[in-house]
Structure formats: structure tokens, C-alpha cells
Computed example of a mutant assay.
Amino acid sequence: MQFHIENMECNGCARSVTKAVENVDPSAQVEIDLPQRNVTITSTQPEAAFEAALSEAGFPAQKLS
């Protein structure tokens, strides 16, 4: 699943996004594309769980198709 996170602007933001994802699924694979402000998550957990965790962490995410 891929999300666009408009306010992910620096490496610190990327670390916070990764931590939020790993709080939902510690074994998730997380790929950050900082210049495009996108995150790709490989996990068996539901998409909504990641959207909620990212939003709670201050990084509201838009689903990319």
C-alpha cells in the first residue's frame, strides 16, 4: 500500500512515520520516498490501521492508487 504524506519534509519526519507504521506492525517493510513525500508499506495489517496511526502521529496520509 502506498500513501502520500504532504507534511513529511525531512529525515526526522520520515523516522516518525516509520515509527508510527512499526507501532501497528513491527514486521512491516517501510520504504520512504522523501522527495515525493510517499511511503510504501508492505504488511498484512489493514490499511485503515496505518492511516489512523499516521494521522495520530501528525502525518495524515492520502492513499495512492
Score class of each variant (00 low, 15 high):
N7W: 10
N38P: 00
L64D: 05
I32S: 05
A53D: 00
M8N: 08
V21G: 00
P60Y: 13
H4K: 15
V24F: 00
E6S: 15
T42F: 02
S55Q: 13
E31C: 05
A57C: 04
C10H: 12
M1S: 12
R15E: 07
H4M: 07
S27P: 03
R15C: 00
I5Q: 02
M1Q: 11
A52Q: 13
F50R: 05
A61M: 05
A14I: 01
I32P: 02
A52G: 03
I5H: 13
T18C: 00
P26H: 03
E51Y: 11
S55N: 12
N11W: 01
D25R: 02
E22K: 14
Q45K: 14
Q29N: 13
N38A: 11
L34M: 06
S55I: 00
G12E: 07
E56T: 09
F50T: 01
Q29L: 11
N23R: 07
P60W: 10
S65P: 15
R37C: 00
V17D: 01
Q29D: 13
S43W: 03
E31W: 11
T44D: 08
P35C: 05
V30G: 08
R37T: 10
I32E: 06
T42P: 00
F59Y: 15
T18P: 00
K63T: 12
R15A: 13
E56S: 09
I41D: 04
Q36A: 12
V30E: 06
P46I: 05
P60H: 13
D25K: 01
Q29T: 11
I41P: 04
A61Q: 01
E22R: 11
T18M: 06
S16R: 15
N38L: 14
F3H: 02
L34I: 05
I32N: 03
I41N: 05
P60R: 12
T18A: 06
S55T: 09
R15L: 09
T40P: 03
P46Q: 15
R15G: 13
V39A: 03
Q45N: 07
F59S: 08
S65N: 15
N23D: 07
E6L: 14
F3V: 09
